[in-house]
Amino acid sequence: MMNLRNNEAGRLHVQRGMRQECKCHGMSGSCTVKTCWMRLPYFRHVGDALKDRFDGASRVLVNNSAHLRAKLKNSRRRRRWRKLGKVLRPFNPDLKPPSRRDLVYLANSPDFCNRDPKLGLKGTIGRSCNHTSIGVDGCDLMCCSRGYRTEVREVLERCSCTFQWCCKVRCKTCRTKKVVHSCL
Rank of each mutant, 00 (worst) to 15 (best):
F54Y: 11
G56C: 10
S58Q: 15
R59G: 03
R59Y: 00
V60G: 00
V62M: 08
V62R: 04
V62W: 01
N63P: 00
N63E: 02
N64L: 14
S65R: 04
S65P: 01
H67G: 10
H67L: 10
L68R: 01
A70P: 02
A70G: 08
K71R: 08
K73C: 02
K73S: 07
K73V: 05
N74M: 08
N74T: 10
R77A: 11
R78L: 13
R79C: 00
R80I: 02
R80K: 15
K83Q: 13
L84Q: 01
L84S: 00
G85V: 03
G85Q: 14
K86Y: 04
L88S: 01
P90F: 00
F91I: 04
N92M: 09
N92R: 14
N92V: 08
P93Q: 02
P93H: 02
D94M: 10
D94Y: 14
L95V: 10
L95W: 06
K96G: 13
K96M: 10
K96L: 14
P97W: 02
P98V: 05
P98S: 09
R101N: 14
L103R: 00
L103M: 14
V104D: 00
V104Q: 00
V104K: 00
V104H: 00
Y105H: 13
Y105S: 04
A107Q: 13
A107F: 09
A107I: 09
N108S: 12
S109E: 15
S109R: 12
F112Q: 02
N114E: 12
D116C: 03
K118R: 10
G120A: 03
L121P: 04
L121R: 09
K122T: 13
T124M: 11
I125E: 15
I125G: 11
G126I: 04
G126W: 02
G126K: 07
R127H: 09
R127C: 04
R127A: 10
S128Y: 12
S128N: 14
C129T: 08
C129F: 02
T132G: 05
T132L: 11
S133M: 08
I134N: 06
G135E: 09
V136P: 06
G138M: 06
G138T: 04
C139P: 04
C139G: 06
D140Y: 09
D140W: 07
L141A: 12
C143M: 05
S145D: 11
G147N: 08
Y148M: 06
Y148T: 05
Y148P: 01
Y148R: 04
Y148K: 03
R149Y: 11
T150R: 12
T150G: 02
E151K: 05
V152M: 14
V152H: 06
R153W: 05
V155H: 03
V155Q: 10
V155S: 08
L156G: 05
E157R: 13
R158H: 15
C159A: 13
C159L: 12
S160W: 10
C161A: 14
C161W: 10
C161G: 11
C161M: 12
F163K: 11
Q164L: 10
Q164R: 15
K168Q: 13
K168E: 14
V169P: 02
R170F: 05
C171P: 06
K172D: 11
K172P: 01
K172Y: 05
K172T: 12
T173K: 13
C174K: 00
C174N: 02
C174E: 03
R175I: 14
T176G: 01
V179D: 03
S182P: 03
S182C: 03
